[in-house]
Amino acid sequence: MSEKFDITNIAKLASISLSDDEKQKLSSDLSVILDHVQALSNLELDTNIEDVYIHPLEKELVLDQDVEKPSLTHDEALSNAPKASDGKFIVPPSLE
């Protein structure tokens, strides 16, 4: 299990920077858990993905009418912004 667990790639996908120590610790924790959940692999399952419901009670989605409802004010929307200017949220550059 642990040899195919590429912690660096997973951390990148999850957007969390990890120190080497953390990588090692988390890899070994996760290996233990993954070994445990391996119990599922012996389970015979024939359920088709189309038979899988998102809702545990197998309810279906209800759609909402296209009618405007009051929203947050501009100030409320920005009230928690770590950095804002001219009514916009500001972040370090995101260009590739």
Binding site: I16, S17, N80, P82, K83, V91, P92, P93
Partner: peptide, 23 residues
């Protein structure tokens, strides 16, 4: 992710900022 609310730990790029914040 530090963009719209909550903790932000800065970085040179948005991506670095997000990774640092989440770490």
């Amino acid at each position: 992710d530090g963009v719209r609310y909550g903790l932000r730990v800065d970085g040179k790029t948005s991506y670095e900022m997000m990774e640092n914040t989440r770490a």
